[in-house]
Design a protein around this nucleic acid. Sequence first.
DNA 1: CCCTGATTCGC
DNA 2: GCGAATCAGG
Length: 205
Amino acid sequence: MEWSEEIIAQLKDLWAEGLSTAEIGRRLSITKNAVVGKAHRLGLPPRPSPIRRNGSKPKTAADKPEQTTAATPVPETPTPRATGPVAPSVPPVPPAAIPTPAPVAEQAAPAAAAPVIASGDDKAARKEKAAPVARSTTKPKTLLRSISDPEPQKRRGPACCWPIGDPGTPGFHFCGATPIPGKPYCEEHAQIAYVRLRDRRDSVA
DNA sequence: CCCTGATTCGC
DNA sequence: GCGAATCAGG
């Protein structure tokens, strides 16, 4: 795996988006392990993890004598990030205070390197082998949309919100294609976004 | 069982 | 440096 600057940028962005490691991996066509591993090496801020490995180490079995001199330069400053992995918390914002709903625009950024998945991603493809219904377990994106703006497509021309390019850079834009009714993405990108979580695991490799 | 992320360790 | 295997909590 070649971690080019671009790929790393995407990883960082998606990571910052709060997407799950598996989700990021899916979009980059890599495994979640790769995502996590790289994220660690990059020193990306860890997200709320359900577990903490400690206590026993069957592998190394090497104990770690705590140095008393190691004061504690690092108190506890993780990242005050919303715990929502894929579920961006929706504060009670008054409807009137939302001039521009912006459905799920900033939900993620696969960036320009998305061609692979957009065209013929093997994993994503086979995952969609029989997905008549978006039965995804983790897709609050639509939820966010519905609550922030009940009927967006009624007031404006719906456009696929799949991000193209690196956010922040001059070529960045959204797909803009006509999305599937009820979804923020066009058919093409919806297939990528709404993946059947169960099949992906062994599908890799 | 499913999901999740973290760490370890062979490469 | 990389990531699969493994571990571990919800």
